[in-house]
Design a protein around this nucleic acid. Sequence first.
RNA 1: GUGAGUGUAGCUCAGCCGGUUAGAGCACCGGUCUGUGGAACCGGGGGUCGUGGGUUCAAGUCCCAUCACUCACCCCA
Length: 426
Amino acid sequence: MALMLTSVPGTNDIFAQSKEYPFREPVFRYIIQTAERVLRSSGAQMIYTPIFEYAEVLQKGVGVTSDIVVKKEMYTLEDRGGRVLGLRPEPTASIVRAYNQHGMKVWPQPVRLFTWGPMFRAERHQRGRYKQFHQVDYEALGSADPLVDAEAIALMVQIYRELGLKGLEVKLGSVGDPEDRVRYNDYLRGLFRPYAQALSEDSRVRLESNPMRILDSKSEADQRIVAEVGVKPMLEFLGPEARAFHERVAGYLEKLGVSFSIDPSIVRGLDYYVRTAWEIHHSRIGAKSALGGGGRYDGLSEMLGGPRVPGVGFGIGVERAALALEEERVQIPADPAPDLYLVPLDEAALLEALQIAQGLRPRFRVEMAYAPKNPRKGLEEALKKAARFAAFLGEGERQRGVVTLKNLHSGTQVEVSPAELAGHLA
RNA sequence: GUGAGUGUAGCUCAGCCGGUUAGAGCACCGGUCUGUGGAACCGGGGGUCGUGGGUUCAAGUCCCAUCACUCACCCCA
């Protein structure tokens, strides 16, 4: 087809017949509703925050050295008053902003919130990564207890379980406290500086700005160097408090029966994360296997200019969950079939059919043919839609003041007045 | 932003060594068929072969450019 008007690359229409599995509306809805069911059962409350904020909120939220800001991966726009706004790349900053703005500190703590919706990143898209993508997000604010971390991880795993996914891998790590990271980064700089010339260009920059990033560099040369120098993992640099915290989270998870592995090299792209960090991976959903991740961000609120509010939360990538469901061929519940399919047999019956339909909706799911059909065609359509009943409306019925109601499961049919239809459908 | 692959009907695709008016299946619409189980048969609409240029007597086919998509890199959900 010649190019006409299309959606922006990396954005997608979500509808039932979409060619791409992650954008089939029933799949999408299944994931969001399942997540919502689990999270509501935990007492978390839904919050919808705007999809755009003052860019400053989002920039501070993702951290100044984060690539999202550095490489301009956040969409920004200017409104008429010259305010610089940004489309959210993730919702955590908005939720922390809302917590402070609405005085949620006087609520019973922790305040546990969840949301879902579109997120935006100005990146080149690929499988499982889009300019507009969707995320289910949970945040527990106002508690620094490791029990809250363990609950968040357990809830996240429970959501994937409820979805029917099996091939999950929970990787738990800790990024320590800020001072631990300073020590670790100094250690890494000292370790890699002698190899600076051999490192990739990207990693040479990282050497000063964010040496932890060198560890998961994709460059083979970098990886060879990493292997050669024998890097100690971040976990070994935890201070006593962060270490104890990490061990308590791990201990709670074991007692909760959540299986996980310790990943000592887990790294966070965002500056405000402290201590607990985790990712949930799935095999074979593309170049990136992460279904979602989470972590603790006790410093975020202060960074936004508010009081210190400890918090922990996670994000679930909806499209990535869908890819995993497709990969595992998990059966998605089918949309309910119509209770009744109305078949007008002549022009005069069209309006009558619509009147009957409107009388039965919304108690029953009622669909109809919008042009006269012969009975065979009408029946065929009703069967294709897997309707429970079909009703024929023709000249004979009109004279007798009835419709012919056919039970498509049993094959039996009766003539009933329109007023009696509801009783037969119930 | 970088690299590779792919572009023929709404979808999945065929189209030989360049050769007449570009095809099939599915889907859609109509008929056989105002009277009953997803059928069958017949018919129909729908394509500037992604776009532009070049080579050639002749281009869906070869060449160049461009655009789009896909995958991957960077980064991330």
